[in-house]
Design a protein around this nucleic acid. Sequence first.
DNA 1: TATTGTTATACTCTATAACTATA
DNA 2: TATAGTTATAGAGTATAACAATA
Lengths: 157, 157
Amino acid sequence: MSARPDRTLRQFLGYGMKRAFAAIQTDVNAALAPHGLRMMTYSVLVVIRDTPGVRQSRLSDILLIERPNLVLILDELESADWITRTRAQDDRRAYDLRVTLKGRRVCDRASAAVAAHDSRMAAGLGPEERLALLDALHRIESNGRSSDDDADQVSRP
Amino acid sequence: MSARPDRTLRQFLGYGMKRAFAAIQTDVNAALAPHGLRMMTYSVLVVIRDTPGVRQSRLSDILLIERPNLVLILDELESADWITRTRAQDDRRAYDLRVTLKGRRVCDRASAAVAAHDSRMAAGLGPEERLALLDALHRIESNGRSSDDDADQVSRP
DNA sequence: TATTGTTATACTCTATAACTATA
DNA sequence: TATAGTTATAGAGTATAACAATA
């Protein structure tokens, strides 16, 4: 009957975003699986590599992961000997997180796989189009945070 | 130490997409909650409204929801008296799905809330930028499907 | 008192196998 | 035998409350 049964939804950014992100997630997880990683574990591994000595609270702020959920991801990375958790010298509640040599090698190989995945998904987009897309995504993320602030202001008059 | 601890991830479309989509999902679910809906239940309700008599298999194809998961969503919508499931005349295995009058009213109100949400999230994007974004998202989704086909061909030589 | 990491728990979305009743 | 819908179940990701050790 209707050629585009989802035409009402197609006008919304969220619908296109959900479908595009689902495609990306499926593809990147397939690309990461041979390396023993998933999107979330890879993201955490990369940020630890790029920020040696980072602590769990900071990491959860950076990646927008709740602290309790990060604990399980770190357990997984630590069990694989890809990161170390060592007590911080200046604060014995905290841990300094670092990637091991093994972890760095896995991270490098996985990063190549993710870069290839990214190129596949971006096929047909020119360099300017790609930059415009990244910029628009960042703008939308910011708009979401502003929305949070507004809600806070309204709920605490 | 690093001003952008996620600079490696920021170059990837998937990372920006995940963060933008998370912001959208939080905002749209907050917009829909007063109407008793979530992103998924709203999407299903809209497609049924726009495709009267649609069947569950077709609906799951349209929205990329697995049939078993759709059943629970429809149970929820039916319990609220927003849709009806009536046996199809030509095939007694199947159901014709339709929104009730009550369901149409909820859907209309929710759609206004979602439209307002969408405008909030798209703030700062011009009409052309917005169209370019929707087009890029659609392109990425297509690239994902091509990737699936390739994988099928490779795994079945 | 506040913070760091942790445990426990719950909810949503997603994914698969196996069942029933029809076709 | 194939399909429409269903049941049961399991895996991820996400979210909150409450706790121990430390600041």
